[in-house]
């Protein structure tokens, strides 16, 4: 065990401590125009194996925060630990990047191989994994996202959802403990969205990989263990999906919403139907309405 690691007992997957991130705005001549505080004192703890969702309007600081989780950005103030490793510690940089993988919005920006299996093998190859093991990892990763049939296909011929799943396989092949997904479904059709979310859930439940999902689609959040809501670089709400989605008006103020079913139940409640707060699924709504008859 390396000395800079915190003891195993209290090791979080992600642990930010009073994290502040500022960037300097400059004019065309390079003179300083001002400082923007994109992250403002965030304390966020993620336990290993959790499925976490991060919500927040455009510009609330979600992506900037996420980029601290695998050392793409470093804090201006405060600290970030990934699996007990301090991100600013150069010694751990590659270990952090291998343990915490990132998936971005646009699948076309993340695929580099001409053939699916090459693309998935790129990560482990760069890590110096022996060839035989690379192919094993490619196999298992493609199976985990149900893309094994497309092993020899060209990524150009895949749908958006399929490409996104190949990107995820590329991350899994590096055997991460945590995957951070920054709006992975923003550019996908309904089917693609379903496929990607299903893959994320399976990785969490079957492989025990910690998932941090950043999204603008409220429906994707209902199964998360914990939800964080950001505004102006701060975490302003934190709780289970039910606790969060019970606050319809507060979410609207934050430029967010709730799943359509939750909103329907909310509207029915306002019209006097005795429904519980925060109905999250269609099944719950049907069951609750049966009791109202």
């Amino acid at each position: 065990m390396k000395s800079s690691k915190i003891s195993t007992a209290m090791k979080k997957m992600i642990d930010t401590d009073k994290l502040v991130f500022e960037y300097i705005r400059r004019d065309e001549e390079g003179n300083v125009e001002g400082i923007t505080r994109a992250i403002d004192g965030v304390d966020l703890k993620v336990e290993p194996g959790q499925f976490i969702a991060v919500l927040g309007h455009n510009g609330s600081g979600k992506s900037t925060l996420a980029k601290h989780f695998n050392a793409l950005l470093y804090p201006t103030e405060g600290e970030v630990h990934v699996d007990g490793m301090l991100t600013e510690d150069d010694e751990h940089l590659w270990e952090i990047r291998q343990e915490a993988g990132m998936i971005f919005q646009n699948p076309d920006n993340q695929i580099i191989g001409q053939v699916v299996e090459e693309d998935v093998g790129f990560g482990p190859e760069n890590m110096g994994v022996p060839t035989d093991e690379i192919w094993e990892r490619v196999d298992e990763s493609l199976k985990a996202v149900r893309m094994d049939k497309f092993r020899k296909a060209s990524p150009n011929h895949l749908s958006g959802g399929q490409k996104q799943r190949v990107s995820i396989a590329g991350v899994i092949a590096m055997h991460p403990k945590c995957i951070i997904m920054d709006e992975p479904t923003a550019m996908l059709d309904p089917n693609g969205r379903r496929e990607v979310i299903r893959a994320a859930r399976a990785l969490n439940q079957v492989e025990g990989i910690t998932i941090i999902l950043i999204t603008h689609y409220m429906e994707e959040v209902v199964d998360a263990d914990r939800v964080f809501v950001m505004d102006k670089g701060r975490i302003v709400m934190e709780g289970t999906p039910r606790e969060i989605f019970a606050q319809v008006d507060r979410l609207k103020e934050l430029r967010l919403g709730v799943p359509q079913v939750t909103l329907l139940a909310h509207e029915l409640r306002k019209s006097g139907v005795p429904l519980p707060e925060a109905v999250l699924t269609r099944k719950e709504l049907v069951e609750a309405l049966k009791k109202c008859r």
Binding site: N58, A186, M187, H216, R255, L256, G257
Partner: peptide, 9 residues
Amino acid sequence: TAGLDPKGR
């Protein structure tokens, strides 16, 4: 509306 938050959409 791709990529916008719910209020933006």
